[in-house]
């Protein structure tokens, strides 16, 4: 269990480097898809644009899921449940809208 109410054991700034790499890669992917959505003709352009929207929806939710798993591993149950609850809210919204 993490120590509650004070600094964590190793709260180094660089500890979330995997998430930083994921976000940088996602930015590049989104850029390529946006350009593709603009310049590709016909169905290919539509597919690229649709994938761009899917990326913009998916990346923040993957980030929340990543944090949820990270907090489960570290025993930070309260915030893992909060993150899981947030994902459940979005899932219910998506199911209702569809």
């Amino acid at each position: 269990m993490p120590e509650v109410g004070g600094p964590g054991p190793h709260p180094l700034v660089g500890r979330q480097r995997h998430l930083v790499v994921f976000l940088r890669a996602s930015t590049i992917v989104a850029f390529v898809l946006a350009v593709g959505g603009l310049i590709l003709p016909g169905r290919a352009g539509t597919v690229a644009g649709t994938l761009l929207v899917a990326t913009l929806i998916g990346v923040p939710l993957v980030r929340v899921a990543w944090l949820c798993l990270r907090w489960i591993r570290r025993g930070d149950v309260r915030f893992a449940l909060t993150a899981g609850g947030l994902l459940a809210i979005v899932a219910v919204g998506a199911l209702t809208a569809l």
């Binding site: 352009g45 761009l52 919204g93 998506a94």
Partner: peptide, 20 residues
């Protein structure tokens, strides 16, 4: 966005322009 996509309100080509 999940909701408005489900409602079919996203114009994909314009979304690519704004996203870029």
């Amino acid at each position: 966005l999940v909701v408005v996509a489900g409602q079919g309100r996203i114009v994909v080509h314009d979304a690519a322009a704004v996203g870029l």
